[in-house]
Amino acid sequence: MRYPLTSLYYLSVILISAVPLPWWFYSVGGIVSVSDSPFQVLVYFMGDRLLLSDVITFLLTGFRIYVIFVAIGYLLETMRGNPKIYSTMFWFPVLYVLDPVIIYVVFLFLPKLLGFPANYPLLIWGEETFTSSYMGNQIRAEVMSYPTIMYWAALASAVLYIPSRLEMRKNRKVMK
């Protein structure tokens, strides 16, 4: 096999995108909790599963199928000695730290929709105590934001993309 690293990269992409586990976990005082990945979303609000998150997960499953089949196709092409570049699963884990930022924006508007104004802290990673006062009453909540083991696996797969590109470049020079 002329492209072992590229083949390994596409194999890891298939595995990462096929496993239905979340990449990031986010919780506001236990009343809102979000666990998501680029292919799925699960939201609990006041202890109840939000059905809207199932609808979004359904649409993201279409994207999951696309990624899996592209990776399978490119793995086969690579093993035939005709490697192709697919960088989506490199950028996703790298840019996933933006996920808490998106969630922050969503939760800036969700409480307003439900009729109680609140401000949430912008938190990328870790735990923070959020305090606020609303109509003279004190509010105190623990806000949590953590990547899961699955996220680290996805990031490890993304790291493989770099040697895979180097390998492709090196082999092309040899061919010339």
Partner: peptide, 20 residues
């Protein structure tokens, strides 16, 4: 768009329509 991406898109769209 190459044939692999085209085939994958068609599969994903087919899944979405069938499941919807």
């Amino acid at each position: 768009m190459d044939s692999v991406k085209l085939a994958a898109s068609l599969l994903a769209v087919a899944f979405l329509i069938a499941a919807a």
